[in-house]
Computed example of a mutant assay.
Amino acid sequence: MDRHCELLKEIQDSPTDINAIITRRRKDFTDEFFQYLNLVSETCDSLEDRDEVSRLAARCLSAVGTYDKTLEAVENLDSAQAKFDDLLNSPSVDVACEKIKSLAKGKELDSSLVLLINSAWASAKDSTTMKNEVKDIMYRLYKATKSSLKSMAPKEIKLLKHLLNITDPEERFSALATAFSPGNEHEAKDPHALYTTPKELHKWIKIMLDAYTLHKEETDIKEAKKMTQPVVIQRLFILKETIEEEYLDQTMAPRTEDKTELEEL
């Protein structure tokens, strides 16, 4: 309790430095801390004081979410860059292509790495100063990536197509929840249904959106090329945000009832 009180005082003393405080003390912004803020708010005598604490809690929650997502993005990019550097440092292009196949087999060919490889080939292809040997290397890595993507978890692509074809938002949300609920011991309730995890489906949505962003209508990922209609892209973004908010952020955010209390104050 003393630690929560001390953290709250630090924030109140420097309200414009919340981001710096979070960077330095992220581990202290726990569920218990936000519950403590709820308690402080409830014990305030005036509505003005309660409102001030509630708004401060909301700012902290938002800043923590932004910090975590930024950190995750940086870590993903660092990891992808390390993999890309390893590919370039391979003794031969054939070895590099085999590494790409191995990454795909281990489901480590993530969207950030795919984007790096695609971007490298796009830059090399349009370059007037880069040697043809380098262009050939980038092209072969790109082709190996494209080929490997086709072998990776096709059920997520089929599931995405199914979800995107559902026009009713509530029905789509229900189908999404069902896709994440295979039942006990991961036995599918419907043998013809497709099941996956939020993290895995989120990864594939990112791959589709990255491919769309990079090449728009000229994307070489066949599934992404079929999903370039504005309404489909909009639904992809909605699915991505829904998975992030409803399934991937649950461990970070305060409990639902705590958030509800904050919103009601």
Rank of each mutant, 00 (worst) to 15 (best):
L163P: 08
L163Y: 13
R140F: 04
S151G: 11
A177M: 01
E185L: 07
A179R: 02
E187N: 14
A153Q: 04
K143E: 13
K135W: 08
K155E: 14
T145D: 06
G183M: 03
H162E: 08
S181T: 06
S151F: 01
P154N: 14
S181P: 00
S181F: 02
L163W: 08
A175C: 09
K189V: 02
R140Q: 14
A175E: 13
K150N: 14
Y139H: 15
Y142M: 02
E133G: 06
M152W: 03
L149P: 05
S174Q: 14
T178F: 07
K146T: 15
F180Y: 08
F173P: 00
F180L: 08
D168E: 12
D168L: 10
S148P: 00
A153P: 00
I137R: 02
A175F: 06
N184K: 10
R172W: 10
K150F: 07
H186V: 02
E133Y: 04
K158P: 00
L160W: 08
L159Y: 12
E171G: 04
N165D: 14
A188D: 05
L149Y: 05
D136I: 10
A144N: 05
K161S: 09
G183T: 01
I166R: 12
K161Y: 05
E170G: 03
M152Y: 09
P169V: 13
K158E: 05
A177Y: 02
L163S: 15
N184C: 00
P182G: 02
F173E: 07
K135T: 13
S174T: 15
